[in-house]
Design a protein around this nucleic acid. Structure first.
Lengths: 229, 229
DNA sequence: GTATAAACTTTGACTAATCAAAGTCAAGTA
DNA sequence: TACTTGACTTTGATTAGTCAAAGTTTATAC
């Protein structure tokens, strides 16, 4: 008889880590702590039945609370682990872009694999090697070792990269002509902006405000606009 | 009815990769292509029954040939994959030591995890980043992308690190006093040497020839002795 | 108030990987 | 030639994770 084989000192499986991470991301995106089963199943690309049974296990393990036909809500323990995985993911993405020079578009899937294989020790060394970055290449904040997300301070629009989706924080110019231009283009605090192109050499950034038509700005103008991811 | 779900275009699982890699290493160590089931089971830390059933699957998949009660022997396809995994393992070990500065003793287990998560693309970038190293930190040769091990050329004893186990290749000095010293210490081609200590600052390397008693040499002498891992 | 549809849960089956324990074989010993 | 032993194989059970399909709730429409 193998004694107490179950759940004793056992690392969470990659699948457990994945469910928790995706549930965390969904709850961060929606701003609500509770996430519906439908969204979980869709996010993880599994059938609803699979999501239900997995979520029951996670609940059993104390990672989250499951309210049948309502949704799930991470426990403190679950959130801590999920944050840690998000940290691994974003540090790895940073490494893949900054150090190895992979393309922006390819890194997500790669990091998704590696994040379950990297140890705390290697992660710490990697963080050190990268200079303890605060944001990943997408502009998302990297959780701290303690599992806390420091909301990134706003950054100038000019520093954003193509593909990013940001929200306008403020306009740092009181000059009325500029403000008038900004109002015309709907460049107002709270608006969602999608960066379509950004060629450093051309000194121009092409963007789309909400669902409006795209237009370009030079660096002089776009450094006056502060945004958050 | 799900059509042809089995074995179609499916990546080998980490477990499959692990079995093949360990079988390759065992066969390289013993110099024989055939490896007994007992050794397989011991190497992979599983019960004999597990090894038998897994090996039958691998045989089914065309990775190796299984001769009941005799042993297994990698097919060309199996050897190619195993070499590829060995390449991943050794490149990762190199990265962990060279770039992240982890300790020699910790890297094996870390690389063992990461090797199953890293993609061909990331590996290529990593190889490039590391300057296409030929040897890992243990002095083992890194297989090429094509899956071939280029026997490493001999290197000076002075360049070996503590913990390495090497074999003497040749002595590049015709001066009789030195050769006499070498003969006394059994520093002769073919002898096995274990490097016990190597402090760069002290300019001394402490070693043990075969099962003789340990002694130290300075760099002047130890650069005249060529060895292979 | 019933009917319907969408969202969710349950059930039963499957795969990969593993172990324990019982069974078999082959080689040497008496 | 029969016996014993160690190496190996078979068998039956278990766990994690998954799907398909059938069943149940809940909310909304009529």
């Amino acid at each position: 008889m193998r004694r107490a084989r179950k759940q004793i000192n056992q690392m969470p499986t990659p699948t457990v880590e994945n469910y928790l991470k995706h549930i965390l991301v969904l709850s961060l995106e929606s701003g609500s702590t509770e996430v519906s089963m439908g969204r979980v199943a869709k996010e993880l690309l599994v059938t609803p039945g699979t999501a239900t049974s997995m979520v029951k296990n996670l609940s059993q393990g104390g990672w989250l609370n499951y309210y049948p036909r309502k949704g799930v809500c991470l426990t403190r323990k679950g959130k801590k682990l999920a944050m840690n995985i998000l940290r691994r993911h974003r540090l790895l993405e940073t490494f893949l872009v900054e150090t190895l020079g992979l393309d922006w578009s390819e890194i997500h899937a790669e990091a998704e694999e590696l994040e379950h294989a990297i140890s705390e020790k290697v992660l710490e060394k990697l963080d050190q090697f990268l200079g303890r970055p605060r944001q990943d290449p997408h502009g998302h904040p990297i959780p701290t070792k303690g599992g806390v997300i420091n909301r990134p301070s706003s950054q100038a629009l000019i520093n954003c990269k193509a593909g990013m989706k940001v929200r306008i924080d403020s306009i740092v110019d009181q000059e009325s002509n500029f403000l008038k231009f900004a109002r015309e283009k709907r460049l107002l605090p709270g608006q969602e902006v999608r960066i379509l192109q950004h060629e450093k050499e051309a000194d121009a950034i092409t963007l789309q405000v909400g669902k409006g038509s795209p237009f370009s700005m030079g660096s002089r103008s776009s450094e006056k606009i502060l945004v958050r991811v």
